[in-house]
Structures are given as C-alpha cells and as structure tokens.
Amino acid sequence: MTARIVEVDFLDPRAVALRSRMAEEMAELYGEARHGTGAEGIDPDSVLACLLVLDGDDPVGTVSLRRLRDLVEIKRMYLMPSTRGTGLAARLLAEIEARAGAVTDRVVLHTGERQRAAIALYARSGYEPIEVYPPYDRVPESVCFAKHLDGTDSV
C-alpha cells in the first residue's frame, strides 16, 4: 500500500463516510446506548485540521484535531480494517500531532477501554493516561490520554 495523507475539510464527504464507518464499529463494540450521551458531537467550527488517508484514490483513514474549551484534542482517528497493523496508524497520529504542535504543546484524546489496539498505539506513541475530562466523564468506558509535544514528560 502506498498511502498518502492529505488535509481536507472536516465535512469532506470521504471523511464523513469514514467517521460513519467508525460510528458503526463503535456501536458494535459498545452497543447503541453509548451514542446517546451527547459526548461525541463535534462542532465543525471547532475543528483545526482534518486529515484523510488515501490509498490511490480510495479513502482508508481519517483523523481530526479540534479545540475543546482550553484543550486541543485529537478526534475520530479511524483506519479501515484492511490497513490496520501496517504502521499507518502511527504515521497518521504523527501527522495530526504535527498539526497540533503548531497551536499547542499538549494534546489530549479520548478512547474507550475496549479499544485495546488504540490504547496500545497511544502508549507506544508517548501518551500518558489522564483523568477523564468532560464531556467523556458521562461515558463509563472512557479512557483519556495526553502527550506533551515538546518532549517533556509531565502531562
């Protein structure tokens, strides 16, 4: 696979379609009730960057970066199952971190406790667990992480 990562609008239909696929996977993993918390809504005006991974012309991954109050948060990182285990996730994460580094020295993210591969990726990439922050404090399976982009260890 020769994947390239491009920046697109958050509402680009290819990114929207991938986020829909992600929502379907999360509904299977956690059940439909998880999506009733209101914790996952993203205001497009809060989005600082949206990246799309293309394999040729086929969209195979996406991730976004947004402002959430005083935080800069990585959101909706998703790769098609066929691309998982190829190193593409680490590459995509590094690309969105580079965008984050232009506006902050600390980035946060939220995932769920059942997403073991994602948690392992974040740990390998230097993320440290932090207290669950709003609005995810209403989601029982929440796990949150932070990373200092300037290389310091304290989160």
Rank of each mutant, 00 (worst) to 15 (best):
M1T: 13
M1P: 14
I5G: 03
I5F: 04
V8S: 00
F10V: 15
L11R: 13
L11Q: 12
D12K: 13
R14L: 04
A17L: 12
S20A: 14
S20W: 14
R21E: 09
A23D: 05
E24T: 14
E25M: 11
M26E: 03
M26F: 14
A27Q: 12
A27R: 12
L29N: 11
A33I: 06
T37Q: 13
T37E: 08
G41E: 14
D57E: 15
D57T: 05
D58C: 10
D58G: 15
V60G: 03
G61S: 03
G61I: 01
G61Q: 02
T62P: 02
S64K: 05
S64F: 00
R66K: 05
R69N: 09
R76T: 04
R76W: 02
M77W: 10
Y78P: 05
M80P: 09
T86N: 12
G87C: 13
G87N: 08
A90G: 13
R91P: 09
L92R: 05
A94E: 15
A94M: 07
A94N: 05
E95Q: 14
E95V: 09
E97W: 11
E97K: 11
E97P: 11
A102Q: 07
A102Y: 07
T104R: 10
R106A: 13
V107D: 02
V107M: 02
H110I: 03
G112Q: 10
G112L: 12
R114H: 13
Q115I: 11
R116M: 07
A117G: 12
Y122G: 04
A123L: 12
R124T: 08
R124E: 11
S125G: 06
S125Y: 10
Y127C: 09
Y127D: 00
P129C: 07
Y133A: 08
P134K: 09
P135R: 02
P135W: 03
D137R: 06
E141G: 06
F145I: 12
F145C: 06
K147H: 05
L149P: 02
D150Y: 13
G151C: 01
